[in-house]
Computed example of a mutant assay.
Amino acid sequence: MLQIVFTIGVLFWLLHNTNWQSLSQRFAEIRPWWFVAAMASYALNLSVSVIRWRIILLAMERTAPILWLLRLNWVGAYFNQVLPGAVSGDVIRAWYTRHQTGSMPLALAAVFGDRFMGMGALIVIAAVAFALGGARVGLLPQMGWTIGILLFAYVLIIILILSPLLNFLEKISGKLGDKLHDIRLGMSALLCHRLALSGTIVLSFAIQCISVLTFWLLAHALGEAPDAVALWVVWPVISLFLALPISFAGWGLREGLMVFYLGYLHMGHDQALALSLLLGFTMVLTSLPGALLWIGLHRHHEAPPDLQSQTGAH
Rank of each mutant, 00 (worst) to 15 (best):
I183S: 08
I183N: 07
R184A: 01
L185V: 06
G186N: 10
G186W: 08
S188K: 13
L191F: 15
C192D: 14
L197V: 07
L197F: 15
L197A: 12
G199K: 04
V202E: 02
V202W: 08
V202T: 07
S204T: 03
A206S: 12
I207V: 05
Q208W: 00
S211M: 01
V212E: 01
L218P: 03
A219G: 12
A219N: 06
H220P: 06
A221P: 00
L222R: 04
A225W: 12
D227R: 14
D227A: 13
A228Y: 11
V229L: 01
L231M: 09
L231C: 04
V234D: 03
P236R: 00
V237K: 10
L240F: 02
L242F: 02
A243V: 14
L244Y: 08
P245V: 11
I246N: 08
I246M: 07
S247F: 11
S247I: 08
F248S: 02
F248A: 02
G250Q: 09
W251R: 05
G252D: 04
L253T: 02
L257Q: 14
M258F: 12
F260E: 06
Y261I: 04
Y261S: 04
Y261K: 08
L262I: 05
L265E: 08
H266K: 13
H266E: 15
M267V: 15
G268Y: 11
H269G: 03
H269P: 02
Q271G: 05
A272G: 09
L278W: 02
L279C: 06
G280M: 04
F281S: 10
F281Y: 13
T282F: 03
P289L: 03
G290M: 10
L293V: 10
W294S: 13
W294R: 08
G296F: 14
